[in-house]
């Protein structure tokens, strides 16, 4: 039976799964939309592995992304890591000399600065989501173009319009304004790409020393228009790794491999979890005025985890080790 490490990245917009072998090369990858139901998508992706690859052995599991704890509860992880570390690890694996990683995902964007193979600085978007994947998605719908066509459309532009990209709301109204003036779609698409890049560099990349080699990761890296806009703005070459869309999951798999050097057995709960019934129940705790919304995940009359409480009254009431999220 073939042996692989499983990397899972549960993000706000997409859930990515990769299988990686001992040589850090990706054997299988899957990019699914989370669609607001992470548990179901997660289970489906695990089931899909069996269907598409057949019987394999999992040596270790790593999870990352904003749903990393949830993924741990459902699948059973050996290591749970934040997205920044996971993306940095994956970037280094692709290009060991990388010095800047630009990552733009569904709801957040980050910059990771590396020197000599270690992360020395990072930043994430603070109080604004302008310039992330969700924003682009929405504007593409508004323009009536498929998001996968967006980049190519932007490349056709000869005379890009300038769109105020500081804030998603203003960018949208400015874009509508330009639309009503009669600018063509490709100029508007290019204008949006430029605005997004400008916003990213002014916000997330502010004060950071951006040096080559630069990697561009995350779902938005598929957009060739954005990549071009980055190259123009920075006057540097921007590389997009082959597996740009699942870099987080790759990082998680590599971290799992490192972790398994220290451990004997994986926590992986097996491929059968795909067919298990998970019930999620939410309730408001009335123990104090915090009124925490507690989430309880259970299966087969067994409670797997509770979380969401500030005081630990619920999360600590379960004895299994993997339920401590607080």
């Amino acid at each position: 039976m073939e042996k692989y490490y499983l990397g899972i990245d549960v993000g706000s917009v997409s859930t990515n799964v990769v299988l990686m072998d001992e040589e850090n090369s990706v054997f299988y990858k899957k990019y699914l939309r989370t669609q607001g139901k992470p548990i179901e998508i997660l289970k489906k992706s695990i089931e899909d592995i069996v269907k598409e690859v057949g019987e394999i052995e999992i040596l270790g599991v790593g999870t990352t992304g904003s749903g990393r704890y949830l993924a741990d509860i459902i699948v059973g992880a050996d290591i749970v890591k934040n997205e920044i570390t996971a993306h940095a690890i994956a970037g280094l694996n692709y290009n060991p000399s990388v010095r800047t990683i630009i990552e733009i995902g569904g709801q957040d964007s980050k910059i990771i600065i590396l020197r000599d193979g270690i992360v020395v600085d990072f930043a994430m978007n603070t109080v604004c989501a302008a310039g992330t994947g969700s924003f682009l998605d929405r504007q593409a719908i508004r323009l009536g173009i498929d998001i996968s066509e967006f980049g190519n459309l932007a490349l056709k532009s000869k005379n890009p319009v300038r769109i105020a990209g500081r804030c998603a709301v203003f960018a949208e109204s400015d874009m509508i304004h330009k639309q009503q003036l009669g600018h063509n779609q490709s100029d508007i698409a290019k204008g949006l790409c430029d605005a997004l890049v400008r916003n990213y560099l002014n916000n997330v990349g502010k004060g950071k020393e951006i040096l080559e080699p630069i990697l561009f990761q995350g779902g938005v890296a598929a957009n060739i228009g954005i990549r071009k806009a980055f190259e123009e703005a920075l006057n540097m070459e921007v590389q997009v790794p082959d597996n740009y869309d699942v870099m987080g999951a790759i990082g998680a798999a590599i971290l799992a491999k490192e972790e398994m050097k220290k451990k004997k057995r994986t926590h992986f709960k097996g491929f059968s979890i795909g067919s298990l019934e998970h019930n999620v129940r939410g309730f408001e705790c009335d123990g104090c005025s915090n009124r925490c919304e507690v989430v309880e995940i259970g299966t087969n009359n067994r409670i797997l985890a509770r979380y969401g409480d500030k005081c630990g009254k619920w999360s600590n009431s379960i004895k299994n080790e993997d339920s401590k999220l607080a």
Partner: peptide, 29 residues
């Protein structure tokens, strides 16, 4: 870290974790 009534806990946690990771790796180096 900037805090206000809109600050989400998940993003806050991610930043803290990543920062601690960064410091660990730096120390190892």
């Amino acid at each position: 870290l900037i805090l206000d009534e809109m600050t989400g806990e998940a993003g806050y946690m991610t930043r803290l974790e990543a920062f601690v990771d960064l410091l660990y790796r730096k120390r190892e180096e």
